[in-house]
Simulated scan of single mutants.
Amino acid sequence: MRISPRAAGLLMGVALDAAFGDPRKGHPVAAFGRAAKALERRLYAKKRANGVVYTATLVGAAAAIGYAAERSARNGTVKAGVTAVATWAVLGGTSLAREGRVMAAHLERDDIEAARNRLGHLCARDPSHLDEAGIARATVESIAENTSDAAIAPLVWGAVAGVPGLLAYRAANTLDAMVGYRSERYERFGWASARLDDVLNWVPAGITAAITVACAPRAWRVLRRDGGKHPSPNAGRCEAAFAGALNVRLGGANVYHGRREQRPELGDGRPPETSDIRRATKLSATVTVIAAVAAAVAANGSSR
């Protein structure tokens, strides 16, 4: 069976991410972040309209760059290579697994302070008063949510829209991480970025949950019962599926940027322990591999 350049590029990009992870220096997402900061300084105001212009400009520019790069490919081999590099640039599955292993290692050594300092690599939760159990829960929840954000969603949008889809999705997700907070500064300006990220992650979150259930069928009951309880319908489905698959209980009180939020409990098991971080990391990697194969099959059919 002949494989399309898009499908081949997605698989090669996943392989590059697995082999090398994110580059330590010169990462294009970091360059995008600097450009976003510069534009924020020019456009910022506590108005949704300014945020809409900000988000549309940056995501539109990313999509345009992707379109130009894909159109400039003169043959299938070059197109596959461009897709592979773009996929590698936007995927975060290997880095997510690395962070999980680092967090597990810190807690296994009883180095709580190092784990607190590292938690910011995974989420925006205030770690200052978290104990080992709180850090373990935060890490498992972040791995569950970011399996969709960092790995599955890029593959879905790469399969659907090629390089423009890959770059536009990562731009939107990066902006959500930068300004999509319910803080005094960003509640209105960051509204468009947060809502766009929610929309783009709706289907990928469902796919993440479905693949998780396929890996551990017992997760279905928890997903069906608890997936809609979370304030974020996307994170809720991923976290509920992981809670059911790992037989742990997620949710509880979290502090973000000085604001305390009480999250509903997801799952019936015990609270997560340090050992569950490594289990969550392995589950995330398995879900990503299955999604990569599925994305390549979908892309092979859609891009002929």
Rank of each mutant, 00 (worst) to 15 (best):
G9P: 04
L10V: 08
L11I: 03
L16N: 11
A30Y: 07
A36M: 06
A36Q: 10
L39F: 11
E40V: 06
L43C: 12
K46R: 11
A49S: 14
N50S: 13
V52R: 08
T57A: 15
L58Q: 05
A62V: 12
A64R: 15
A64C: 07
I65R: 02
Y67D: 11
A68M: 10
A68H: 03
S72Y: 02
N75Q: 08
G81R: 01
A84N: 04
W88K: 03
V90H: 06
T94Q: 05
S95A: 15
L96Y: 08
R98D: 10
R98Q: 15
G100W: 05
V102F: 05
H106C: 07
E113R: 06
A115K: 07
R118A: 11
L119W: 03
G120Y: 09
D126Q: 05
P127L: 05
P127S: 09
D131A: 11
G134S: 04
I135R: 02
A138P: 04
T139V: 11
A144Q: 06
T147S: 10
I152V: 14
I152Q: 00
A153R: 01
A168V: 01
Y169P: 01
A171N: 04
A171Y: 02
A171V: 10
D176N: 03
V179W: 01
G180E: 03
R182S: 10
R182W: 13
S183Q: 05
W191V: 00
S193N: 05
D197C: 03
D198F: 12
V199N: 06
L200H: 00
N201L: 11
V203A: 12
T208D: 09
I211N: 01
A214Q: 02
A214V: 10
K229W: 15
S232P: 03
N234K: 07
N234Q: 03
A235D: 01
A241I: 14
A245R: 00
G251Y: 04
A253T: 15
V255A: 08
Y256R: 08
H257V: 05
R259M: 12
Q262Y: 14
R263V: 02
D268M: 13
G269T: 13
G269A: 13
S275K: 15
R278I: 04
R279H: 13
S284F: 00
T286P: 10
V289D: 01
I290L: 10
V293T: 15
A294C: 08
A298D: 04
G301H: 14
R304H: 15
